[in-house]
Design a protein around this nucleic acid. Structure first.
Length: 214
DNA sequence: GGCCAGGTGTAAA
DNA sequence: TTTACACATGGC
């Protein structure tokens, strides 16, 4: 029977250390990145973040004040720019209203609150839960579900199904939040590695640690 | 040139 | 409740 602890240990052995994994200069920057990265590559997100930073827009009030059309042009590199510019407006409003009191909300209440925001679905909510509010979450994104399938946890067609079926055997309390944050990073890096090399079998061999994965 | 990337909202089965 | 589709750019 597969276990999350064993999977985590295996990934740590076979995938380069991903460190903090979600580097950002502020909590709000993580929120913005979580929206922009939806169904898109991170390098493209960085271009958009650079554009936003250059105009001082990694700030919720500034994003709320900016013209939505102009915002769209700045985040164009990361795709779905018309939708995501609206999403960023919505999440800015939420951040201004809720960030300062988020610490008083329990995990379920905070997650529910995030899910009311237009553009924040289950994965984005959990990204923010984990990386901004340091709540113990496992991210059941595409890479994770693919890996969970090939490692025998089961085949899940949606985020919600995977979460419902597997959270009980995750035993989140046995992991530190830092470990869970690293866990997600390791899974994504492993997924990219698998894509590049044409299969998850790469994970059965130790990596060459002389070469850092970019 | 086609496929895909750290999803989400909406409408129709 | 679940599935199908639109949304968009850029890398390989």
């Amino acid at each position: 029977m597969p276990s999350f602890r064993r999977l985590y240990d295996t990934l740590r052995q076979h995938v380069s250390n991903v460190g903090k994994w979600w580097p950002a200069e502020s909590d709000f920057e993580i929120v913005v990145g979580a929206i922009l990265t939806q169904n898109t590559n991170w390098p493209l997100v960085e271009r958009s973040l650079t554009n936003l930073r250059a105009e001082g827009l990694l700030d919720p009030q500034a994003l709320l004040d900016i013209d939505v059309g102009h915002l769209g042009t700045l985040i164009r590199p990361s795709g779905y720019f018309r939708q995501k510019s609206q999403y960023l407006k919505a999440v800015s409003r939420w951040f201004i209203d809720t960030h300062s009191v988020a610490a008083m909300l329990d995990d379920d209440a905070l997650r529910s609150s995030l899910l009311t925001v237009r553009g924040v679905g289950e994965e984005t909510a959990d990204d923010i839960m984990l990386y901004v509010y340091h709540r113990p979450m496992f991210i059941y994104d595409t890479y994770a579900r693919r890996l969970l399938r090939v490692t025998g946890f089961g085949d899940f067609t949606s985020y919600a199904k995977a979460r419902k079926a597997l959270d009980a055997q995750l035993h989140a309390e046995d992991f530190t939040v830092a470990e869970l944050a690293e866990f997600h990073g390791l899974i994504v890096e492993a997924g990219k590695l698998a894509n590049r090399s044409g299969g998850w079998s790469q994970l059965t061999k130790p990596i060459d640690r002389r070469r850092r994965i970019p």
